[in-house]
Design a binder for these strands. Structure first.
Lengths: 183, 183
DNA sequence: AATTTCGTTCTACAGTCGTTGAATGAGTTG
DNA sequence: CAACTCATTCAACGACTGTAGAACGAAATT
């Protein structure tokens, strides 16, 4: 019931929310601590006081949960990947978009993407009975990243406002062929 | 034979080359005019004098040629797309990488990517006998962008140093299925 | 030879950035 | 009520940025 700690958690969360939004909208470099502070209706010094540095703020703002691929047979993995694709198309997972937006210019963000992809293809390549398994898994990651980027960030015509299910259906044969061994 | 105009074209080209390299390596925002000037062994003021502004320098540095897709039957288009993929994997087209590196944070670069994609799917959607043609063409663009980004910019493991032909063969079924109408 | 052109450099300005440390004032604790 | 904690603000520093304009000197023109 302590008003003090409650208030702190509140403003801290407000700062994090605005940071996520701005990082997702304009990327790491163009997002200024001053802009985050203004959006959160707070002094810039407070952001520093709570998070230490812009780098640490970015790290906190882009923390992600557990990898959503569980493994299984190639067909099961393909279905899980399609579900992952669908969810990445439907809502806008703002912390993911913050990382994606920054991955090409901010080394730390690129590293996070590589790590996430690594989590994926670990499970994927287990399921693919092929000596190209690692490569195929990496290609799948690249394809999923490309579609998410094309839709949410570059906003390619016809892709930005299409029905998610329709996109998933269009890509189903591709994902299935990529998670199989034969050509 | 005039020493003067020759010298100017020479240094201008040297500036453009270094600008392309730096834009490709670190993106628009992190590439400073001072850094370009230093790399080209020239004064920063000279870069301004020749190109007017950083924005115009970027435009000149990322000028591209004609769209490489010619159209035809779905199978022919698929083959052309695979050739495009192969060439984008083999050498590093540094002016393309400059645009790709900056597309997520620099609006102008994003616009250029949309325009290039537009050139593509114009030809692509003509060849696909389907009411989803536009969407399928956009998905193809996103896939190609994703693979190029994953290989050259994010440097995903196993994708960054794989044999281009191997990647092309892995993606052939996907591209073919995306340029067909039936599921 | 005198004058103009122009490739190139130097210096400086105004703005923005991340970051810091002191100051304030209300809430908590003894 | 006094002492203290701490969420928050204020003011400022040093570094870096894109950009402008004056100045110099060698090549081109007359």
């Amino acid at each position: 019931m302590s008003t003090r700690a409650e208030q702190r958690r509140n403003t801290e969360a407000r700062i994090l929310a605005q940071a996520r939004r701005l990082f997702a909208e304009t990327g790491y470099d163009r997002t200024t601590i001053r802009a985050v502070a203004t959006a959160a209706e707070v002094d810039p010094g407070l952001v520093m006081h709570y998070f230490g540095s812009k780098e640490k703020l970015f790290a906190r703002a882009t923390e992600r949960g557990t990898p959503p691929i569980r493994g299984g047979t190639p067909e099961q993995v393909a279905e899980q990947l399609l579900d992952l694709l669908r969810s990445s198309l439907a809502d806008e997972p703002v912390e993911s978009l913050a990382v994606l937006r920054s991955m090409l210019t901010h080394p730390e963000a690129a590293h996070e993407v590589r790590a996430a992809s690594h989590d994926h293809w670990g499970r994927i390549s287990e399921a693919i009975p092929d000596d190209q398994a690692d490569l195929r898994a990496a290609v799948v990651s690249a394809v999923l990243i490309g579609v998410a980027v094309g839709r949410h960030l570059i906003k390619l015509d016809h892709l930005a406002d299409a029905d998610p299910d329709q996109i998933v259906e269009i890509l189903r044969p591709s994902i299935r062929s990529l998670t199989k061994a034969d050509d």
